[in-house]
């Protein structure tokens, strides 16, 4: 029994080294004074300063943020509706097609989604005259579409775990269906809705392939900007940008983790309390 954990722990160490050495190296080289991004030339924070002076980067980041906020919100609304429909309405016309439509985008290669959406927008512009220009609107529409199914997945799995009888209890106590939805269903699944939103937000703010297809001239999101720079090679200001991202995400994840752990502790304490008061 004791030889295997040693091997497993070795693999864990190897795996985490594999995960984090590239990222740590990237962070380190963001403080590199040299213009050659991969050769150490002394410590400096000049790339950060340069980054914040670069209007293009700021502009792209703001556009990305705007798209992500809007598309995550709409994706959450639509995705939650779908999740509820799939979990609570057993029979309706076209249920099979709908369940196909919410799983297909999960496995669809982004390139295909990208060219398909672009062709749709071009043909729509030609036949309906809308969207006249590609950019903010088309990117947002595409992001809503392919991130809403992730929200659906999260909400749906929460819904099928939830006890249906609490909804029935609310009906039994005189609530109309929409009151049940407002008072019971939505509050109970709200954590899932929130994680769905977070997922949709990160998917949107991280997307490069689909955005790159459906965007128009002058509308550069941050990932598109990075993409076009990275294609030309490694540059130190991207290292700085990457470091900022990693730090923001890292802080977010640590906060979330601590909150979760505290909630878990509270739950345990509550259970002990319930046990102690047992009649």
């Amino acid at each position: 029994m004791n030889r295997r954990p040693l091997f497993l722990i070795g693999m864990l160490c190897f795996g985490f080294a594999f995960f984090y050495i590239p990222i740590l190296s990237m962070i380190l080289f963001s403080f590199n004074d040299s213009r050659l991004a991969t050769v150490w030339g002394g410590f400096s924070t000049k790339w950060y300063a340069e980054l914040f002076r670069n209007d293009k980067v700021i502009e792209a980041a703001l556009l990305s943020l705007r798209i992500a906020l809007i598309s995550a919100t709409f994706a959450t609304i639509l995705g939650t509706m779908t999740g509820i429909a799939m979990a609570r309405f057993r029979r309706f016309k076209g249920r099979t097609l709908l369940s196909g439509l919410v799983t297909a985008p999960l496995v669809m290669p982004e390139v295909i989604t990208g060219i398909a959406s672009l062709m749709l927008f071009i043909l729509m512009a030609q036949w309906l005259g809308w969207p006249a220009q590609r950019g903010f609107t088309t990117i947002t529409l595409a992001h809503i579409t392919f991130s809403m199914v992730f929200v659906t997945t999260v909400v749906h799995s929460r819904m099928i775990q939830a006890d249906v009888s609490i909804e029935e209890a609310a009906v039994d106590l005189g609530s109309k269906p929409w009151q049940v939805l407002r008072d019971i269903t939505l509050p109970v699944i709200s954590p899932a809705i929130f994680s769905g939103w977070l997922l949709a937000f990160t998917i949107s703010i991280d997307d490069v392939v689909i955005s790159n297809f459906v965007t128009g001239p002058g509308n550069t999101t941050l990932p598109i900007l990075i993409w076009s720079k990275v294609k030309l090679g490694v540059t130190p200001d991207i290292n700085a940008l990457a470091t900022i991202t990693v730090v923001i995400v890292g802080i977010g994840v640590i906060i979330a983790g601590t909150l979760l752990q505290r909630a878990e502790k509270r739950r345990l304490r509550d259970e002990r309390m319930a046990y102690r008061d047992n009649l």
Binding site: D163, S165, I166, E168, A169, A170, D172, L173, D183, I184, V188
Partner: peptide, 10 residues
């Protein structure tokens, strides 16, 4: 009104 098997408390 019904008292559910699982109690179904909100």
């Amino acid at each position: 009104h019904m008292m559910f098997q699982s109690y179904a408390l909100f």
